[in-house]
Amino acid sequence: MKSLQCFKQGGGNGGGQGKRLERRLSLGEYKKAVSWSKYLVAPPGAKIRGGGEELWSADLSKLEIRTKFATGRHSRVYSGRYGGLEVAIKMVSQPEEDAALAAELERQFASEVALLLRLRHPNIISFVAACKKPPVFCIITEYMAGGSLRKYLHQQEPHSVPIELVLKLALEIARGMSYLHSQGILHRDLKSENILLDGDMSVKVADFGISCLESQCGSGKGFTGTYRWMAPEMIKEKHHTRKVDVYSFGIVLWEILTALVPFSEMTPEQAAVAVALKV
């Protein structure tokens, strides 16, 4: 993909504001920052948007950032509005002192945008726009008011999800994943936290930061997924296929049926060892 940047209309960098936006966070700021959203604020009267072939690039003057509602290892997710749409804004920030991590986060951002651009399915999260404004990248998608499947299951009593809902959720996840595989894409991090729900309990598979084309995935060496849902061949850093998503789908089905956390009696590392040695 070509340069993933957001440009200020008319060229230039807007003086001090542009310089501030281009500075990466120090490691201390990265760990302690209350909000990364300030790096995506357009100066009064300015329109910051993509140019050339970057039709996906966000116009930040249309972006309203609201409340943070989720936090990942290297990301934060905010609710907001974009051009009248209710959206979720996933922000990823590059720490200044860790060049390898910064490069990997940039690669994941580029890959996720490239994949989202080609995906169109009722059970896959819809892409709206994206922006790279060092030190922060953002990906804007449709907002799912029901939150994650993990959040919903956490609120239920064990083994209490009605069988009709179990079947509905399972079928819709399967449809989304079947479509993804038909496009030659492996998700590689399918878990209840990455399955989103709307107010009617309809399903959308989300978060393609570590997804890849099956023809280009190679081995699992250096891969960082989520152990409780990770297939044994990925834990062992072996070559893997779409079967890794099938394994994760099975774990998610168990979650829906039980409303429990997989391998809850173990740490994530213990779960990984158990799966790798016993499966």
Rank of each mutant, 00 (worst) to 15 (best):
E53W: 09
L55D: 15
S57E: 12
A58S: 12
D59N: 13
L60N: 06
L60F: 05
S61H: 10
S61M: 01
S61T: 02
K62C: 07
I65W: 05
I65F: 04
R66M: 10
K68P: 00
K68Y: 03
F69R: 01
F69Y: 10
A70S: 15
T71E: 15
G72P: 04
H74I: 10
V77S: 08
Y78Q: 05
S79A: 11
S79F: 11
G80K: 00
G80F: 01
R81K: 13
Y82H: 08
G83T: 06
L85K: 11
V87H: 03
A88P: 02
I89T: 11
M91H: 07
V92R: 09
Q94H: 15
Q94Y: 09
P95Y: 09
P95K: 06
E96G: 05
E96A: 12
E97F: 06
E97H: 14
D98A: 05
D98T: 11
A100V: 15
L101F: 13
E104A: 09
E104R: 15
L105H: 09
E106G: 10
R107F: 12
R107C: 05
Q108N: 10
F109I: 10
A110I: 03
E112P: 00
A114C: 06
L116P: 07
L116S: 04
R118S: 13
R120S: 15
R120G: 15
N123H: 07
I125N: 10
I125A: 03
S126R: 13
F127E: 08
F127S: 02
V128M: 02
V128H: 08
A130N: 07
C131P: 03
K132M: 14
K133S: 11
P134L: 05
P135Q: 03
P135Y: 08
V136N: 06
V136S: 08
I140V: 12
I140D: 00
T141C: 02
T141Y: 03
E142G: 14
Y143V: 06
Y143P: 00
M144H: 04
M144N: 01
G147C: 03
S148C: 07
L149Q: 05
L149A: 00
R150N: 08
K151L: 12
L153H: 03
L153E: 00
H154F: 08
H154K: 13
Q155G: 12
E157A: 14
E157N: 13
P158G: 01
P158E: 04
H159K: 13
S160R: 11
S160W: 09
S160L: 14
V161A: 04
V161M: 03
P162M: 05
P162Y: 05
E164V: 09
E164Y: 11
